[in-house]
Simulated scan of single mutants.
Amino acid sequence: MAAKGLVYGPLGSSCVHLCVDMQRLFAPGGPWAIPWTQKVMPAIEELAARHAQRTLFTRFIPAARPGEGQGMWARYYRRWAEVTLASIDRDFVELMPTLRRLVPPAKVLDKHVYSPWTEGHLDSVLKNWEVNTLVITGGETDVCVLATVLGAIDRGFRVVLVTDALCSSSDSTHDAIMELYHSRFSEQVEATTVQGVLDGWH
Score class of each variant (00 low, 15 high):
residue 7 V to D: 08
residue 10 P to N: 07
residue 12 G to E: 14
residue 14 S to K: 11
residue 14 S to L: 01
residue 16 V to H: 10
residue 17 H to K: 10
residue 18 L to I: 08
residue 20 V to M: 09
residue 24 R to E: 14
residue 25 L to V: 06
residue 27 A to K: 05
residue 27 A to E: 09
residue 28 P to T: 05
residue 32 W to D: 13
residue 33 A to Q: 13
residue 35 P to T: 12
residue 36 W to R: 06
residue 38 Q to V: 15
residue 38 Q to H: 05
residue 40 V to N: 00
residue 42 P to S: 13
residue 43 A to K: 08
residue 44 I to Q: 01
residue 46 E to G: 10
residue 47 L to K: 03
residue 48 A to I: 02
residue 52 A to R: 07
residue 54 R to L: 01
residue 59 R to Y: 02
residue 62 P to Y: 10
residue 64 A to Y: 11
residue 64 A to K: 14
residue 67 G to L: 03
residue 69 G to Q: 13
residue 70 Q to K: 03
residue 70 Q to L: 08
residue 71 G to P: 05
residue 74 A to Q: 11
residue 89 D to Y: 06
residue 90 R to E: 14
residue 92 F to E: 07
residue 93 V to C: 12
residue 97 P to V: 10
residue 97 P to I: 10
residue 97 P to C: 08
residue 101 R to K: 15
residue 101 R to Y: 13
residue 103 V to A: 03
residue 104 P to W: 02
residue 105 P to T: 14
residue 105 P to F: 11
residue 112 H to A: 06
residue 112 H to P: 00
residue 113 V to H: 00
residue 114 Y to K: 00
residue 117 W to F: 11
residue 118 T to I: 03
residue 121 H to Y: 06
residue 123 D to E: 12
residue 125 V to F: 01
residue 125 V to M: 03
residue 128 N to C: 07
residue 128 N to Y: 05
residue 128 N to W: 06
residue 136 I to Q: 01
residue 140 E to R: 02
residue 144 C to Q: 00
residue 147 A to R: 04
residue 147 A to W: 05
residue 148 T to M: 00
residue 148 T to A: 12
residue 155 R to L: 05
residue 155 R to F: 01
residue 156 G to P: 06
residue 156 G to D: 12
residue 157 F to S: 03
residue 159 V to F: 13
residue 161 L to R: 06
residue 161 L to E: 07
residue 162 V to L: 09
residue 168 S to L: 09
residue 169 S to A: 14
residue 173 T to Y: 12
residue 178 M to N: 11
residue 178 M to D: 07
residue 179 E to V: 04
residue 180 L to I: 07
residue 181 Y to T: 07
residue 184 R to A: 05
residue 184 R to H: 10
residue 186 S to T: 10
residue 186 S to L: 09
residue 187 E to W: 08
residue 189 V to L: 14
residue 191 A to W: 01
residue 192 T to A: 00
residue 194 V to S: 02
residue 195 Q to D: 11
residue 195 Q to W: 09
residue 198 L to V: 15
residue 198 L to P: 03
